[in-house]
Design a protein around this nucleic acid. Sequence first.
DNA 1: AAAACAGTTCGTATTTATACGAACAAATGG
DNA 2: CCATTTGTTCGTATAAATACGAACTGTTTT
Lengths: 99, 99
Amino acid sequence: MAITSKKYTDKQELVAKFANALGHPVRVAIIELLNKQSCCYHGDMSDELPIANSTLSQHLKVLREAGLIQGEINPPKTKYCINKENWNLAKGLLIGFFD
Amino acid sequence: MAITSKKYTDKQELVAKFANALGHPVRVAIIELLNKQSCCYHGDMSDELPIANSTLSQHLKVLREAGLIQGEINPPKTKYCINKENWNLAKGLLIGFFD
DNA sequence: AAAACAGTTCGTATTTATACGAACAAATGG
DNA sequence: CCATTTGTTCGTATAAATACGAACTGTTTT
């Protein structure tokens, strides 16, 4: 093992973070829904996806914490969109990773 | 929820499978090592990575089961390579996913 | 003010991931 | 044949992911 305090490079951590966020089919499906119409209400997605509402909230949180999406809360509705800046960052990193 | 027996499309499952395999920084690092020199012995990687040997074996297994790499066992050495066919499949899927 | 609506968070159960050392396996060198 | 080398698998401990219903939080409607 290399004697560094940090185990992995920032780039490796970032690639892993984005990849990990996309590492569940329902999150892939969520992103596809958002990409199809730019933004989407929680309820719209809930109608399309085979999971409980609370579970959907959790997956949305994972995507939000990875930076791939952002939510705008206007109770009782919440609108989610792709975070384009980070989306492009992820795109660049992943494409670069695959050469 | 849609009333389908299958919860997600094959494509969504595949994207998630590949993404999940890349969802840990050490696996990203492993792939980078393999891409740098096409093939690599377990021991070479073990020298570069901050994890125990047995843990490395487990991560290699994850990548192997996702189809991204393949191992050639010639005891006591094992050589790992990128599985180019699946690598290109993953590349295409991921790039397509990001538009 | 009470009920309804749309989500989120909490509590919890179950599964999967991650990590390590010890034990094992398969070929090679003394 | 026994020791060494190189990985793998096993046993195990701990942490993280996944899923659901129940309870909660703000608006809006009645």
